[in-house]
Write a protein that binds this DNA or RNA. Sequence first.
DNA 1: TCAAAAGTGTTATCCTTACACCCATGT
DNA 2: ACATGGGTGTAAGGATAACACTTTTGA
Lengths: 336, 336
Amino acid sequence: MTRPGPPRGRSNAGKDAITVELAAVIVAVASDGPRVLVRQLDTSRPAALPSGPLEPRHRTLEAGLRTWVEEQTGYDLGYVEQLYSFGDANRHASARAQPGRMLSIGYLALVHESKPHGMDESEWRSWYEFFPWEDWRTGAPAILSTVRDGIAGWIAEAPRDERKSREERARVAFGVAGEHWNEELALERYELLYEIGLVPEAHRDGAACWAPREAAIMEADSLQADHRRILATAISRLRGKIKYRPVVFELMPPRFTFLALQRAVEALAGVELHKANFRRLVEHQGLVEDTGAMSSKTGGRPARLLRFRREVLLERSASGVGLPPVRRSATPQRPR
Amino acid sequence: MTRPGPPRGRSNAGKDAITVELAAVIVAVASDGPRVLVRQLDTSRPAALPSGPLEPRHRTLEAGLRTWVEEQTGYDLGYVEQLYSFGDANRHASARAQPGRMLSIGYLALVHESKPHGMDESEWRSWYEFFPWEDWRTGAPAILSTVRDGIAGWIAEAPRDERKSREERARVAFGVAGEHWNEELALERYELLYEIGLVPEAHRDGAACWAPREAAIMEADSLQADHRRILATAISRLRGKIKYRPVVFELMPPRFTFLALQRAVEALAGVELHKANFRRLVEHQGLVEDTGAMSSKTGGRPARLLRFRREVLLERSASGVGLPPVRRSATPQRPR
DNA sequence: TCAAAAGTGTTATCCTTACACCCATGT
DNA sequence: ACATGGGTGTAAGGATAACACTTTTGA
C-alpha cells in the first residue's frame, strides 16, 4: 500500500490554484465585556482578523494558524479550536480578485487577558462594536429597532409565496417583539442581514441584495473579506459551548471571584444572569475551588478568590456553566 | 474597494498546489443499527467514503460535495452539515503520494433509508464494523478487552514522567472498568488508538507508533486515507447533537413508532434507553404528533404511528431527544 | 396460554428559578 | 448611614429515573 493507484485529486495547474487562508478570532474578556483582537492595517479600510495563507512549511492547519498569529500579534496561543471552512466562490471581493480559488478556515482562540502587546497595528475591540444587536446585557439594544425595520421592509415586499417563509426566518433569528431571544443564533442573524443586504459587505461583494447599499446598517463596524462572518461563527459557537463545556475558564485569570466569572459569561452570552443561582450552579458542579485568598478590590465586601479545578477537564463529561436562566425579554435599557 | 492592494495569498505554483478533497459520511438507520454508505472499489483495499476533489465548477464546498455524492452513489442528499477540515501534512499515504498538499473536508449527511441504489460499488455497512468497541447496546462489547489490553501495555511501558498522563487519557476516553462510558468520545478514542498504533492505518501512514504493526486491532475494518478518522468525527458529532437538536428525525421514515425512534437513537448513541421514560420525554417535548394510523407489524400489540412535528425546527431552540439515562455500566453481554 | 411489544401510573429525587434576606467593607 | 457587592436560606415547580403494572396482538 505504499504506491497508490492513479492519484485521486486532479492537479490544480495555474489559474485553478487553491489558496487557503487561516484566520483567527482571538477572544479575551475585559471587565466590561468581550474583546476580539483585530489588525487595523490601513485606516481607510475595515480592520482584519489576524490571518495568513497556509504554506508548505506548516505541518498542520492549526500550526499554520499559530505561526501567523505569533508573527502578527506576538501571542503564543493556548486554547484553539477550528470553527468552519468557508469556500463560496463569490463570497468576498478578495476571493474574486485573484486567480484561482480561495478558501478560508476560521479558528477560535481563547486567551486570559487583553494584555498590551508589541505589535502596534493590532488592537482589542469589543465584539459588540461589530454586532451591536447582540448585546442584551442591559435589555434590548437600541439598534435593534433599526435592524427590525430593515427586516420588516424585506418581509413586506416579499412576493406572496415567500412571505410566510421570510416571516418565519426573521422570527426565529430575531424573535418577536422581544420574546424568545436566542443568543446562540448570532451567525444566523448575521447571515440573514447579509442576504437581505443590510450589511455593507454584502454590497462590497456584489451580491444581489434586496436592500440598497444606502440601507446598510453603518452603526456597526465591518471587517475585511469574510472576517465578520467568521467572527459571527465564533460568537455563536462560543455561546453554545459555554453551556456544556467549561471553556469560560480559558478566559479567566488564575484567580477570580464569582462575580468576575459571572460577568465573563454574561459578556459572551450577551445576557444577564441571576447572581445567587449562578454561584450555586458553578459551585455545585465542582468547577471551582477556594484558594483561601480574598479580594478586597470588589467595591463591597471582600470576595473569595477562586481557581478553576483543572481536574474537571478529565472528569466524565465536564459540563459548562449553565446559562439559560434570565432576563431575555425586551425590557427597556436599564442602568447597571 | 474594488481593487484590493497587494494580493494577500501567495500563489501556489506547481508542486505547492493544494488539493481539497470533499468526503461524505452518509448515515442511515436500519432496523438493527446504524449504517454508513461506503464504496468498495477494489476488493484488495479498504473501502472509501464517497468523495472527490473540489473543482472550479463547484460554487460552494457543499455543492461540490453534493455533486460527487450524486455522481458516485445516485443520492440526492437532504440534510448535510460540515464536520471538520483536516490538513496534517503527513497524516495519510495518499496525501504524501502526490506533489503539493492535500486537505480533506468531511461532511455528515443524514438520509431516510438505506434503500437500494443504482451504483453497485457502494454498499451500506454498519458503522460498528469500523468501531466495534463503540457498540454498548447489549452491554460492554467483547472486543473492549483486546483494546484495553493494548492500551494497558502502552501505559505500562510509559516513561516515569508520562505515566500519569497516559493513564488519565485512557481513563477519560475508555473509562475505568466499565464505569463512566461516555459515548460522545468516539473520536478521542480513535485518535488515541491511532497514536498508540493499535489501528492499522497508523502504520500504513508511517507514523511513529508505540505498538508494532502486528498489534493492530484487525477485528475492526479500516477505510482508505483518513476516512475512518472522518467517520469517527461524524459519530462523535452526531452522538452529541441528538441530545440538543432533533436530528434523529432526518433518519426516520415519514411515519414511525415510538420504539422505532428509540431504536434509532440507541443505534446512534450505542447505548440502551429506558422505554417508558423515552416515550414520555419525546412526547413531552412536543417533538412528535399522532397520525391516527396504527402499525400492526410490531410483533406485539399494534403501535401508534407518529410523525415528526416539523414546526419544532422553527420553535425557540428545538431540543433533542435527551439521551443520558441508562445502562452505561459494563454489564456482560445480554441477549435482547 | 405465552411471548412480545404497547402503553399507563406512581413515586422519590434532584435541579431550576425566584424571592427574601443578612453580611462586610469603603466612603 | 448607605451604597456596593458577597453570600445564605428556602420553597414552588418541573424534570428525571426507576419500578410496577395493565393492555393488545400474533403464534
